[in-house]
Amino acid sequence: MDIDKNARYAASHEWARKEGSDFVTGISDHAQHSLGDIVFVELPAVGKTIKKGEAFGVVESVKAASDLYMPVSGTITAVNDALSGDPALVNREPYAGGWMIKYTAANPSEFDVMLSPEAYEAEAGKE
């Protein structure tokens, strides 16, 4: 499994990365691999405020639909519109072109307590 060393991770397989004053989130390489071919991604409206642990969207693979959980409370500033035309970007580039949302964090300390790349790799490797 590929790990982005610059991101931190949730046990539910989302990653978060600081980019300037905002945060960016998508799903891990381990998650996209487990889901299989992704055919649809539903993302929130820009401006929406979502708490940590609440669903911010849905990813649908060939076999199933899965909720996506906010790793850090925040207000959506951008979503990746490219995923509506090419949802498989999440499979091909989970940490780059397959990003899902950008947001301003309400409480940035929530980021600091997320799993480190090493801790997530160890956790995901057990599955």
């Binding site: 299989g36 071919d37 055919v39 060939v62 076999k63 498989a88 499979n91």
Partner: peptide, 20 residues
Amino acid sequence: RMAPFAGYDMPITYPLGAVE
């Protein structure tokens, strides 16, 4: 990726992926 189908453990997808 193997899974049970009609009592058989069958290939659902290969690494190529279901769409491809």
